[in-house]
C-alpha cells in the first residue's frame, strides 16, 4: 500500500530534520519566532542626559526621528514606552540640555518626534536614542547614522529584552 510506505519515509524525513536542526541550532526552543534583542551601539550613550522631558517637539523642528519598539522573541509592539532622543543639530551641541527630548510610543509601538535638523558632528551625521526605563526591559542606546547629511529624517528600531 503506497500510504504506509509514504508514512515511513515521511517519518524518517521529519525526525531527521528535527535532529539536524536541533544539532545545528537552526531552530532554538523558546525562540521559535526568534526576534533578537537590539544590542546597544558603540558610542550610543555619549552625551546622554538621564530624564530628558517628554516634549511636543525638540526646538523648532523640521527633522523627524522615528522608529518602533517591540519585545524580543515574539515581536509584540510595546505601547507607551519612553524613548529619549538627542543629537548635534542646527540648534545646539549634543551635550546641550535643549538638544534633548523624549516621546512615548503609540499603541502599535511606534514613536515619532520632530527635532531640529541633524548636522554632521564628530565626522558623521548621526543621532542618539535611548530606552532607559530599565525596570521591565534592559536599557538600550542607539546611534543611527544618516545616509546623507541632507536627509530630513532618521529612524531606529528597538527590540527590547526583558530585564
Amino acid at each position: 500500500m503506497p500510504s504506509s510506505q509514504f508514512t515511513r519515509r515521511g517519518l524518517l524525513a521529519v525526525s531527521g530534520a528535527i535532529i539536524v536542526s536541533s544539532l545545528t541550532g537552526l531552530v532554538r526552543p523558546g525562540h521559535a519566532s526568534g526576534l533578537a534583542p537590539t544590542p546597544t551601539m558603540r558610542g550610543g550613550a555619549n552625551n546622554y542626559l538621564p530624564g530628558a522631558p517628554i516634549v511636543e517637539r525638540i526646538g523648532g523642528g523640521g527633522f523627524w526621528m522615528s522608529g518602533t519598539v517591540r519585545r524580543a522573541g515574539d515581536g509584540m509592539p510595546l505601547a507607551r514606552r519612553r524613548i529619549q532622543i538627542w543629537a548635534h543639530t542646527t540648534e545646539g551641541h549634543e551635550r546641550d540640555p535643549h538638544s534633548h527630548g523624549a516621546t512615548l510610543t503609540d499603541a502599535e509601538g511606534r514613536f515619532r518626534l520632530e527635532m531640529p535638523q541633524i548636522v554632521p558632528a564628530f565626522g558623521q551625521p548621526h543621532g542618539h536614542l535611548a530606552y532607559d526605563d530599565g525596570v521591565e526591559f534592559r536599557t538600550v542606546f542607539l546611534r543611527p547614522i544618516m545616509r546623507s547629511a541632507r536627509d530630513t529624517s532618521l529612524s531606529a528600531d528597538f527590540v527590547l529584552e526583558p530585564a
Binding site: 551601539m41 558603540r42 558610542g43 552625551n47 551641541h93 558632528a121 564628530f122 565626522g123
Partner: peptide
C-alpha cells in the same frame, strides 16, 4: 578642542572603542 566639545566621544576614540574607523 574635540575633548572639550564632547568628552565621551574623544575618550572613546583614545581608548579605541569608538564606532567610527576614522577615530
Amino acid at each position: 578642542g574635540l575633548w572639550i566639545t564632547s568628552p565621551p566621544d574623544m575618550i572613546d576614540a583614545l581608548t579605541f572603542s569608538a564606532p567610527t574607523a576614522f577615530s
